[in-house]
């Protein structure tokens, strides 16, 4: 459903993402992994339309997005890495703003907001400004905002940060249900255990390049490693974690 072809992003002399080609098919959850600074968030921002690519194309339903951004964005739901919200608005006010910007009718919007706030346990806090919310509560507001208009493409950038265990479980089931409903989902995260459980396929990025793109089981079989964590470490880690830890303590004691 969504494709990036030879997608590149440069910041001056620094190339954050280098000619990557990925496909996010409908009906599946695609995991997107990479260490800090690998270009993960830059890719996600380009796919969400927040950042203009320096090169390459983004295709939606096989057609380049160049003149179809509005149509694409109308069918996109996005949860950013940081819960960046307007802190002086209440959750319903923020969600009303999102719904109105998407042109939703007032009655439908009010019903949906009310129902989703109840389902995600935010209804008792509906009169509080977002500045009083915890990180997890802000994350829930973002998740509701992304789902409000029933989008076909969903991009989640670290959506679980700050969520409590119950909300995490709900979210995992929600992703599976959305995938069954035919949505194309890109799930970017650092938490390998969750990605392993949720995603059928993973893309691993390192220093702006794709180093792996396959089913989780296929990657494990190919590299003869028992877990996704070991696969990830093998592909992108250049230092032994235990050695680094020992060196940190050495510096502390110096």
């Amino acid at each position: 459903m969504l494709q990036a072809v030879r997608l590149t992003r440069r910041y001056g002399g620094l190339t954050a993402v280098r000619e990557i080609t990925i496909t996010i098919p409908a009906g599946r959850v695609t995991g997107y992994l990479g260490p800090n600074g690998s270009g993960k968030s830059t890719t996600v921002k380009m796919l969400a339309g927040l950042l203009e690519p320096s090169g390459g194309d983004i295709l939606f339903e096989g057609v380049p997005l160049k003149n179809r951004w509005e149509e694409y964005k109308a069918r996109l739901g996005y949860v950013p890495e940081e819960p960046l919200l307007y802190p002086y608005l209440t959750a319903p006010e923020y969600l009303r703003l999102v719904g109105r910007l998407r042109g939703m009718t007032e009655n439908r919007l009010a019903e949906k907001i009310d129902a989703l706030l109840r389902l995600l346990a935010l209804h008792p806090h509906r009169h509080l400004p977002i500045s009083a919310f915890s990180k997890g509560m802000r994350q829930k507001v973002l998740i509701i905002a992304a789902l409000l208009h029933d989008p076909d493409v969903l991009i989640f950038d670290e959506p679980l940060s700050g969520l409590d265990v119950t909300a995490m479980l709900v979210f995992r089931h929600l992703l599976a249900t959305l995938a069954e409903a035919g949505k194309a989902i890109l799930y970017s995260s650092h938490v390998l255990e969750v990605v392993e459980k949720i995603c059928s396929r993973v893309i691993i990025l390192d220093r702006g390049r794709i180093v792996a793109d396959d089913e989780v089981s296929a990657l494990q079989a190919m590299m003869r490693l028992p877990s996704l964590e070991r696969v990830f470490t093998q592909l992108v880690s250049r230092e032994d974690a235990a050695t680094v830890a020992r060196e940190i303590v050495g510096v502390m004691r110096a």
Binding site: L50, P80, Y86, V98
Partner: peptide, 16 residues
């Protein structure tokens, strides 16, 4: 700006 980092909302949701 009210909250500059939160402006992504308009970029994603609002028509150009």
């Amino acid at each position: 700006p009210a909250e500059l980092p939160a402006n992504w909302l308009f970029q994603i949701n609002a028509p150009l």
